[in-house]
Design a protein around this nucleic acid. Structure first.
Length: 468
RNA sequence: GGCGUGGUGCCCAAGUGGUCUAAGGGAGUGGUUUGCAAAACCAUCAUUCGCCGGUUCGAAUCCGACCCACGCCUCCA
């Protein structure tokens, strides 16, 4: 059995073969840190997390690098609007980004290269391209990549340069260019750039957007590596340009598998800043949606499928997570004396899960395998057919699935104003009332706590409580 | 204009020629449990896969036309 991934460049599923045995090097396009990321952004990082976790589940060692774009038009503009330095601005959002990744239980990449740390390497690569005749300088001190010199241009995005619509962009583009669609490798200094500038052979200026990924991926993963990911909106122009630069500069193959995740939608429209229909992670947490529900929702729709966001889906997601968590705790506590060792169910669940996920991360199929095991296990425990050892085996399997899902053991942020002593005293008071069969009083206390968002659950082991 | 993606039960969503009278999750319904609830558990829940035609012994799955939704071709995960 082998893993297959959909490769954007060939537009079909291909068998996954790593360059090095059991080792995968992947580059994942990270954020531009000029604002808080919204959950549409996080969908992509979640997909990359799933990809990496699954490869690890399948026994690969994964080396992941994720870039941080900390200099570009947006960051410069925003820092000037806010009247802070570029560094100050990007540091703030960089910190926010890392905090969100942690909240969402996204495994940290091994490297987070920042564009501003690699400017001299970028200059070198631009010089190489210029030397080889793939780039040209313009009078304003900029350097452009000449797409006419590279006949593979458009291969990734499946666009033919001469068939692309022109629009009216020539007028609002202040740079001089020989060809209409050549792109900037290096941007000559303009007054709007403020104090953001580097010296270069072409005068002072700053790097173009695309060159950073070519340089940083080459530096950290080598000229030729296994997987490159991002959102579908990165396909063109960003990844197309990166591909052109890297292939021309390094003279070798660049990436074996290009994988892109689809958009997160709101009311069937792309979630974006301009439509003002976005939610940040903080927005959802403020509305008391649990992190596990958010992770589950983002994770469990196939990455190449558009995902229409709604808060109702968060509620559904939370219930599914609860069901799994309940199953795990039942397995852990199980002390039955049945004779079924669960072997068959464990084997088929593992096989079904793996077969589904091997097929381009078919998470729906993977979850079906897990929930079939849940149903079987619950029934076997209820009927005392399962042995204690069997429960242990199932638990172990579920924990290995958890390495892929990363959702059962997620920590929720503690609610700041929670007086646990008060809650416990109310519960004690209610239990006293219940013991006296004063159910009117007991129900009143339950309602009182419910109004404060605290839900009581009576179990054979006593009364438990949780946040609604 | 060019290039794409998707339309499956009340909702979400797998399945891409026979084992599909269609997986799984949520909701609903019935039951177990409970002082009553809640939660949990069990059971049940599409002869049907946007529409029309065609190919085939056989189609949700292939082909053609059409309708609808969304995206890319410009910064965007």
């Amino acid at each position: 059995m082998s893993i297959h991934f959909y490769n954007t460049i060939s537009r079909q599923k291909e068998e996954f073969l790593s360059i090095e045995e059991k080792k995968v090097r992947m580059y994942t396009c990270g954020p531009t840190v000029y604002d808080f990321a919204h959950i549409g952004n996080y969908r992509t990082f979640m997909f990359e997390d799933l990809l990496r976790r699954y490869l690890e589940f399948r026994g690969y060692e994964v080396i992941q690098a994720m870039n941080i774009t900390d200099v570009d038009d947006n960051t410069i503009r925003r820092s000037r609007e806010k009247g802070v330095s570029l560094k100050e601005l990007t540091n703030e959002y960089k910190a926010g980004f890392h905090a969100d990744l942690k909240s969402l239980n996204i495994q940290p990449a091994h490297q987070y290269p920042e564009a501003t740390q690699y400017v001299s390497e970028m200059i070198e690569m631009v010089q190489e391209l210029e030397k080889m005749g793939f780039a040209y300088k313009t009078d304003d001190g900029s350097v452009y990549f000449d797409i006419g010199k590279y006949d593979g241009y458009g291969k990734l995005a499946h666009l033919k340069p001469d068939e692309m619509e022109r629009g009216e962009r020539v007028t609002d583009d202040s740079y001089e260019k020989e060809g209409a669609r050549d792109f900037a490798l290096w941007k000559g200094y303009k007054p709007e750039d403020g104090d953001v500038e580097w010296d270069s052979p072409w005068g002072k200026g700053r790097p173009g957007w695309h060159i950073e990924c070519s340089v940083m991926s080459t530096e950290l993963l080598g000229a030729h590596f296994d997987i490159h990911c991002g959102g579908v909106d990165n396909i063109f122009p960003h990844h197309e340009n990166e591909l052109a630069q890297s292939v021309c500069a390094n003279g070798s193959k660049f990436v074996n598998y290009w994988m892109h995740s689809e958009y997160l939608l709101v009311d069937n429209k792309k979630m974006s800043k301009s439509l003002n229909n976005f939610y940040t992670l903080r927005d959802l947490l403020d509305k008391k949606y649990p992190l596990a529900a958010i992770r589950w929702m983002l994770l469990t729709t196939h990455y190449r499928q558009k995902l229409n966001f709604s808060v109702e889906r968060l509620d559904e997601a939370q219930k599914a997570v609860n069901r799994l968590r309940e199953f795990v705790s039942k397995l852990a506590d199980y002390d039955g004396q049945g004779h079924d060792d669960g072997k068959n169910s464990v084997m088929s669940a593992k096989a079904d899960f793996t077969a589904a996920m091997d097929d381009d991360l078919n998470i729906s199929g993977g979850l079906a395998a897990i929930f079939e095991l849940v149903r079987w296990g619950n029934r076997a425990m209820d009927n005392e057919e399962l042995s204690k050892e069997g429960a242990g085996k199932i638990l172990k399997l579920v924990q290995s699935f958890e390495h892929v899902l990363g959702v059962l053991t997620m920590k929720e942020e503690p609610s700041p104003k929670l007086d646990t002593v008060y809650i416990e005293s109310k519960i004690a008071e209610r239990n006293a009332a219940r013991a006296n069969k004063d159910f009117a009083r007991s129900d009143a206390i339950r309602d009182e706590l419910a109004d404060q968002g605290i839900e009581l659950i009576d179990t054979p082991d006593g009364t438990k409580w949780k946040l609604k």
